[in-house]
Amino acid sequence: MTIDRRTLLLGAGATAALVALPRPAQAAADATAAAANTKTWSADHSDNGWSIEADTIEPFRIEGSPATVRLHPGAAALLLHVARRWHYEVSPLRGAKDVLGHRTDRAVAAAFESNYLSGTAIALPGAGDGLWPHQKAIVRDILADCDGVVRWGADLSPAAEGHFQIDVRPDSKTLTRLTATFDNRSVKRNGPRPGAVDDPTARERRAKARRLEQVQADN
């Protein structure tokens, strides 16, 4: 069954919450600790095995939103699928500044951050203060769409709920298959409209999402 994503969000009954801002002293301490853990990534490949080559990076528009993001073309189909569903079902993307893709700054606080250097990771907004349970369930459903090719930062250490990365090497057969699938389903090729999605609460989809969560959260 296919349902409208905005209807799904309204049905979830999410409510807004006030979040206390950190005290200045604590914020300064956090910034100092982060700086102390920062290292320079000197390898020619990112942590997921993709080459770091700035001239391969291209800009891509996220369907249904005003946002664009710079990515490696080989990683784009899956990461754009993640970003599009995030926009409709988790937190709206209002412009280019809402999405982080490729970057050239080699300073990293964790190895997985190097995947931005190869254009094979994105950071999306709305997760800084933690996601609601229904939002996490949707993210798990998105990951199930991607058959383990995309990994969520919530399953990494340190956890980063806005982070998503390609978790296979560029010669992955599953990556190739899914890239073709998502390309064929794009709006430009008469695929489903951006606001339509298979029901993430369907029993088989929930079961698939739980199985993948067990695998990715344990690795």
Rank of each mutant, 00 (worst) to 15 (best):
T7Q: 15
L10R: 15
T15E: 12
A16F: 03
A16W: 12
V19M: 09
A20S: 09
A20Y: 04
L21G: 08
P24G: 08
A25Q: 15
A35S: 12
A36D: 15
N37I: 03
T38H: 04
T38M: 14
W41G: 12
A43M: 07
A43F: 11
S46G: 05
G49F: 10
G49P: 07
S51D: 12
E53L: 06
E53H: 08
D55C: 04
D55G: 03
T56Y: 05
I57A: 02
I57W: 00
I57C: 02
E58H: 05
P59F: 05
S65Q: 00
S65P: 02
P66I: 01
T68S: 15
V69P: 01
V69T: 04
R70V: 01
R70I: 00
G74M: 03
A76W: 01
A77P: 05
L78Y: 03
L78C: 07
V82H: 00
V82Q: 01
A83M: 01
R84W: 04
W86L: 03
E89Q: 15
S91C: 12
P92N: 10
P92Q: 09
G95D: 07
D98W: 06
V99T: 01
V99A: 00
G101V: 00
R103C: 01
A107V: 00
V108G: 05
A109S: 12
A109R: 10
A109N: 02
A110C: 09
A111Y: 08
S114W: 06
Y116D: 01
T120W: 02
I122S: 00
A123N: 13
L124S: 04
G126P: 03
G130Q: 07
G130T: 05
L131D: 11
W132H: 10
H134L: 08
K136D: 07
V139Y: 01
I142L: 01
L143H: 02
D145C: 04
C146Y: 04
C146S: 07
G148A: 09
V149R: 02
V149A: 06
V149Y: 05
R151G: 11
R151V: 11
W152H: 13
W152R: 04
G153R: 12
A154D: 14
D155F: 14
L156W: 06
P158N: 06
A159M: 13
V168R: 11
S172I: 03
K173I: 08
T176A: 15
T176D: 12
L178T: 00
A180G: 08
T181M: 05
N184T: 06
N184Y: 03
R185E: 13
R185L: 14
R185I: 01
V187R: 08
G191W: 10
G191Y: 10
P192D: 12
P194S: 13
G195I: 05
T201D: 08
E204I: 06
A207D: 15
K208P: 02
A209P: 02
V215C: 11
A217M: 09
D218R: 15
D218M: 13
D218V: 06
D218F: 11
N219H: 14
N219M: 12
